[in-house]
Simulated scan of single mutants.
Amino acid sequence: MDSISLKQNRPVAIWLLIGAVMIIVQVLLGGITRLTGSGLSITEWQPILGALPPMNEKAWLEAFEKYQQIAQYKYINSHFTLEDFKSIYFWEWFHRDWGRLMGLVFIFPFIYFLVKKKINRSMIHPMIILFLLGGLQGIIGWVMVKSGIGTDLVYVSHIRLAIHFMAALVLLCYVVWFAMKITVPPQVLSSNASVRSLNVWLLVLITIQLIYGAFMAGTHAALAAPTWPTINGMWWPGQYMFNQGSFISDITHNLISIQFIHRNLAYLITIMLAWWTWKASKLPAGEPLHNMRYIPLVLVVVQVVLGVIALLHSPLETKLLYSILHQFVGILLLIALTVTYYYSRGRRGQRSR
């Protein structure tokens, strides 16, 4: 990739990275929506008309009446006043409208770049994949909400929540990867196989960890043991971890098991990232991967600290702030590991700058 191509691709890369930032905001809004129990407050999907919230008292009462028909209101929020309903409606509406805005931010610049011939032939297939992933995410979101309407469910399944969450992160990582692919010259990539291999394992572990983070949020598992460093005074709460009837159920539905796995994965990832940092420090000075070697380690330490704080605050009103910060740093860590993996993909013998 020559310098002229890099310069020509820069506007497209900036557009993609703006989209990545918007995806991060959308994921955080999704977290707030879940933690505030707002996800089922809007009981219908109107892609265009739904962009505006109820504009008068009559419209608000109609929306509230529809919410009163679902199980969440009947069994959990029957004490809600109209003002209470408005507070949860806001987060779901904002979450959906941000998704609409993202669609516009992706579509209109895409048309502009297409007309101006800023998108070359090699970008077409990645662009198609990008739009398909974005559309899929919207469909998953609505299916998830729909599952809690007209049923006895008071909350959307944490499994569906995790699928929705991870689909968004796949889209995010794809956008970041695409932006790097069209702007990063291959000459700056590192070719150390052991660093790359360890990076792959870290990506696998952080993916599992993020899934369990969604399980933690979806089941409110923190409330089952809001203590640290032990779990309700136990280092090994084995007698409380295996009571669901099957191993799969134990690791996906047992609150103590979910929390135990989430905690210990954090410790394992921290240790492995320290090892990765040490390996990356052995790379030639000046290589991008060498220069960014401390970023993932700093992020994971901050992430663990925020996780502990969020856990201890889970019974308190301040839980939302720390939980969202915890989620945000987790997303940054995933992006950092995606970037470091990209920079570790150099071929052996390739000259580095």
Rank of each mutant, 00 (worst) to 15 (best):
F90P: 04
N232K: 14
L289E: 09
N254I: 10
M234H: 13
R10L: 15
I42H: 01
T338D: 05
A59F: 02
I70K: 07
L316Q: 15
W228M: 08
H253Q: 13
I163R: 00
F110H: 01
I251E: 01
V304E: 00
I70D: 03
L299D: 00
E65K: 13
S323T: 15
K74I: 07
A168G: 15
R348E: 14
D97M: 14
N254V: 10
F131S: 07
V184S: 05
V200H: 14
L189H: 06
V176R: 01
L101C: 05
K7D: 10
S194L: 10
H158D: 03
T33M: 04
H262A: 06
V188W: 08
L82Y: 13
L203G: 13
I159C: 00
F94I: 15
L210M: 15
W228Y: 15
N291E: 13
L132A: 14
L316F: 12
N199I: 06
L101P: 00
P47N: 09
S190H: 04
L6V: 15
F247P: 02
L316Y: 12
L130K: 04
G233Q: 06
L136W: 07
V176Y: 01
L28N: 05
V170C: 10
S190Q: 13
A71G: 08
I18M: 12
K282P: 00
T207Q: 07
H326W: 02
L29C: 05
G138W: 05
C173I: 08
N243Q: 13
Q46E: 15
V176L: 03
E62C: 04
E287L: 06
Q8D: 11
G138Y: 07
L332G: 01
N232R: 11
K146S: 12
W236G: 02
G37Y: 03
R353D: 07
C173T: 05
D2T: 09
G134N: 03
S147F: 00
G138R: 06
I124M: 05
M272A: 14
E62N: 12
D152W: 09
Q187N: 11
L17H: 04
H290C: 01
I129H: 04
W15D: 03
S190Y: 02
G141T: 09
G99I: 05
P54L: 13
L202D: 02
K319Y: 04
Y267Q: 10
I76P: 03
